[in-house]
Simulated assay, not measured.
Amino acid sequence: MKQILIADDHEVVRSGLRAIIETRADWIVGGEAINGREAVALALKMKPDLAIVDYSMPVMNGLEVSRRIRLHHLQTEVLILTMHESEEILTEVLLAGVRGILLKSDARSHLTTAIEALLDHRPYFTSIVLERLLHDYQANKKNKSEILLSSREQSVVQLIAEGHTNKSVGEVLNLSVKTVETHRASAMRKLNISSTAELVRYAIRTKLIGP
C-alpha cells in the first residue's frame, strides 16, 4: 500500500485529489495538511511515499516543504501543484530538487499518471511544462551561442592577449593573417569590445592567461 500526503490550503482541492487517489486500491491518503508547516510535520511523522504539495501555501510554500523533506533525507517523492507555469517557478522547482510538476488545470486528467511515475521514482512533468522548459532551454542555448567564443577564437584571443601580432598568431596556429583577423574581429564583436586592452582584460578574467 502506497501512502500519500496531500498539502493544500483549499479544502475543495484536497477533496478532489483525495477522490482521484482513492480510486486506486493500492493507494491511500495518509494525511492532509493546510499549510507548509503542517506538511513538513506530517511528512516527518508519516514518511509517505509521495507528497502532493501546492506551490502557494501559507506559512511555508511548497518549495520550502520540498527542501525540508530533502534536508531530512526522507525517501518521499514530491509532486508540486501550481496554477502557473512561469519560467521563475519552473526554475525554482527544479533547483529545489523536485522531480514532479503538475498544473492544477491538468490534475483531473494527469494526476494518476504523475503519481504512478513518481512512485516508480521517475520524473513527471506535464506536456505544457515540458514545452516551456524546452523553449527556455533552446532560447538560453541560442543566447549563449551568440556570446561564447569558438575554440579557435579563444586561441586567437589568448595569443593576442599574450602580446602576439596577427602574423605571429597565424604562424602559431598555422593560419593566414586574414583568417586571424577574421577570428579576432568575430571575437571582439561577440564580446562587444573594441580595443586590444579590453581583449587582454577579458582573457585575464576568463583565465585564458594569467594576470
Rank of each mutant, 00 (worst) to 15 (best):
R24N: 04
A25V: 00
D26L: 09
D26W: 08
I28Y: 04
G30P: 00
G30C: 15
G31A: 15
A33T: 06
I34A: 12
N35W: 09
E38T: 03
A39P: 01
A39F: 05
L42F: 07
A43V: 10
L44A: 11
P48H: 04
L50H: 00
M60T: 08
N61A: 11
G62H: 03
G62T: 08
L63E: 03
V65R: 02
V65T: 02
R67D: 07
I69R: 05
L71K: 11
L71C: 04
L71T: 11
L71I: 10
V78Y: 05
I80F: 04
T82P: 00
M83K: 04
S86Y: 04
S86H: 10
E87R: 10
E92G: 12
E92R: 11
L94R: 13
A96W: 05
G97K: 04
S105Y: 06
A107G: 05
R108M: 09
R108L: 14
S109Y: 06
H110G: 01
A114Q: 03
A114S: 10
I115W: 06
A117T: 01
A117S: 14
D120I: 09
H121D: 07
R122Y: 13
F125L: 11
F125G: 03
F125Q: 02
R132H: 12
L134N: 07
L134A: 14
